[in-house]
């Protein structure tokens, strides 16, 4: 049980893909000007990430090492295309608001990153938990920033008009960058404050490992 708790906490907080590892930045910056799109993108990634983790983990003994990356990409691309069809059929509003970023989930580094760093070494159940935890870590981060950006930038929340005072820049990429940057700083600051001890060190190691792998 402890193992799953650890995976969950890592995905949600200590290795939060958005704030700690700073992965999947393109959809984050592109969509947090609206809380609805941000939450929608987050939940879409949860589903795709969990499914891709499960499938890749189940196939880890079948896929030869040499062609693993192309295989992962094909599997992820299939899942993204499938999600795109589902959304277009059943949630056309969300489909419209996600726009081009829906197709770009394929190259979202979180998904390929988790496949490479976790799913191909762990069991199906662990990978599923990891997918859910990371996905929800991403979703929560996006939704929180989406709420901030939409409230200040458009004076509304999930599309409902709240106030007339707005600062237009927060509805643009400039505001998204600003909010994202400050959010990371706050997050790191709070984590540092409460968890000064070893957790952070482990985390830093993990982060360096991750970056090393990406470059390699």
């Amino acid at each position: 049980m402890n193992k799953y708790k650890r995976i969950t906490l890592d995905g949600l907080i200590f290795q939060n893909p958005t704030f700690m590892l700073v992965l999947g930045t393109c959809p984050t910056l592109g969509l947090i000007s609206s809380a609805f799109s941000a939450a929608g993108m987050g939940l879409t990634v949860v589903i795709i990430l969990t499914l891709s983790n499960v499938i890749i983990s189940a196939l880890k003994n079948v896929i030869p090492n040499a062609v693993r990356i192309p295989c992962y990409i094909v599997i992820i691309a299939t899942l993204v295309t499938f999600m795109r069809m589902l959304l277009e059929k059943f949630m056309p509003d969300l489909y419209d608001s996600l726009g081009g970023f829906l197709a770009l989930i394929v190259v979202n580094c979180i998904i390929l990153g988790r496949a490479e760093a976790f799913a191909n070494k762990h069991t199906v159940v662990e990978s599923a938990v990891d997918g859910l935890a990371n996905g929800f870590g991403f979703t929560i981060a996006l939704t929180l920033m989406g709420i901030v950006c939409e409230l200040i930038g458009s004076g509304s929340l999930f599309g409902a008009h709240i106030m007339d005072f707005t600062i237009g820049i927060f509805a643009t990429p400039a505001g998204s960058f600003l909010v994202y940057g400050i959010s990371i700083a706050l997050f790191v600051f709070v984590i540092d404050l409460f968890e000064k001890a070893k957790r952070v060190k482990i985390n830093k190691l993990a982060r360096e490992n991750m970056l090393d792998k990406e470059v390699a």
Binding site: V22, I169, T172, P173, A174, G175, F177, L178, Y180, G181, I182, I184, A185, L186, V188, F189, D192
Partner: peptide, 23 residues
């Protein structure tokens, strides 16, 4: 820069200013 702000946060705030200039 303060520890929490070093690295990505500073880069993003810088990027934010570039975006504003490009607006």
């Amino acid at each position: 820069t303060p520890k929490a702000l070093s690295g990505f946060p500073t880069a993003m705030v810088t990027a934010s200013f570039i975006c504003m200039a490009f607006m």
